[in-house]
Structures are given as structure tokens and as C-alpha cells.
Amino acid sequence: MPHICGECGKVFHASSYLRRHLRTHSGERPCICKECGKAFLNSSYLRKHLTIHTGDKPYECKECGKAYRRYNLLHDHLKTHTVEKPFECDACGKSFQYFSYLTKHIRIHTGTKPYKCKYCGKDFTTSSSRTEHIRTHTGERPYECTECEKTFTSSSNLIHHVKIHTREKPFVENAGRPTADFTY
């Protein structure tokens, strides 16, 4: 039985998801961080946030020792150790799991941009980057933040935005230069 939001008409398959969604309309954020006072829609967002204060990275790679705050990040990292990459770039030596990945990579060296925007004629190296660009013309924003319902043209922009809610700081100082401290 579907559960429908009376405010915006969104449909949810479970009443618990509807209850959580209703908080986006009411502004209710019942889960509060005792460390900094930031409030969250639900306890799972609060748990993720708490690792920022503790610095806790309980998920460690047994292969190289690198540690992560969340299991899904470790899971993604583990693939870097187990995946065979037989396709090597002659220009720089970088290896790839699939020939198609190597083909896309080679475009960096050759400057080839085979995908053209039908609206403005701009060229792109990948069809996905062209698709993302076309959204600037069409206004399509298919990626939505579950915290505040803001929408984005790309999943990477959404991922970056979500860090605002968790107050995660993806860059750390390294000899005066910021370096990335996260994996997509």
C-alpha cells in the first residue's frame, strides 16, 4: 500500500519513509549531536556525522592498512586490490580493467572529443560528460538530496553537497596544500 505525502504528493512504499520525509516539510530534526549541536533528520545521519568528531575509521583494508569511516568506502577501495587491469596505456603506463576504459583514457593524450552537444556544439571526451552538460540546457536535475531535497545535474555534485549536511571536510592540509581525503 503506497504512502503519500499530503504536502508534495511524493509516494513512499513504507510509512517510516513517509514519516522521515515529512520532517523535510516541518523542519523537524530530532537527532542532535551532543558534540556540536547539529541536528539531523534521523539517527543514521547522526551516526555518520559522529565519526567526524571521533576521527574513528573502523573499516581497515587488510591489504594496505588504509582505513575508512564507512564500510561502503572500504568496499570500493578493496576493488583496487583485486581487479585485474590487463590494458595498459602506452603513453603513461596506467592500466585499466576494461579495454573501453583504456580507450576513454587515451583521449586525454590525443585530445579527441567525439561527443558533441546538439544545443551549443561544444565537444566532450565522454558521452556521460556530454549528457551532464546537456542538462544545463534542458534544466534536468535528476539527483536529489534526501536531507533537503535540493537537486543536482550530476551524482558527483550531489555527493559533494551531502558533505555540507554531515559537515565532513573532504580536504585535509598536507604541507600547506589541501589534498583529497575521500573516494568516490
Score class of each variant (00 low, 15 high):
Tyr59Ser: 01
Lys150Asp: 10
His21Asn: 12
Lys57Thr: 10
Tyr17Lys: 09
Leu158Arg: 07
Tyr119Phe: 13
Phe152Leu: 13
Pro58Gly: 12
His81Val: 13
Thr131Met: 07
Thr153Trp: 02
Thr183Cys: 04
Glu168Pro: 00
Ile4Asn: 04
Lys104Ile: 15
Ala39Pro: 03
Ala14Asn: 00
Val172Cys: 00
Pro30Gly: 12
Leu50Lys: 04
His3Asn: 10
Ala14Pro: 01
Ser16Thr: 14
Phe87Asp: 06
Lys150Thr: 10
Lys48Tyr: 01
Val83Leu: 07
Lys62Val: 11
Cys64Gln: 09
Phe87Arg: 05
Glu28Ala: 11
Ser100Asp: 03
Gly6Arg: 14
Lys10Phe: 15
Gln97Asp: 12
Gly139Val: 14
Lys169Gly: 00
Ala175Val: 08
Tyr143Arg: 07
Val11Lys: 14
Arg135Gly: 03
Glu173Pro: 00
Ile4Glu: 14
Tyr59Ile: 05
Cys61Gln: 02
Tyr101Leu: 10
Met1Arg: 10
Glu144Ile: 11
Glu63Phe: 04
Leu50Trp: 02
Cys89Met: 02
His161Asp: 14
Lys57Ala: 09
Thr110Lys: 04
Cys8Asn: 12
Gly111Val: 05
Leu18Phe: 12
Ala180His: 02
Leu74Tyr: 08
Phe152Met: 12
Glu63Tyr: 03
Tyr98Trp: 04
Thr51Ile: 11
Glu147Phe: 08
Tyr101Met: 04
Ser44Met: 13
Lys10Ala: 15
Glu147Ala: 05
Thr183Tyr: 01
Thr112Arg: 01
Leu50Asp: 03
Arg23Cys: 15
Lys122Ile: 09
Lys48Ile: 11
Lys66Val: 08
Ala180Tyr: 00
Arg135Pro: 03
Asn42Arg: 05
Glu168Tyr: 05
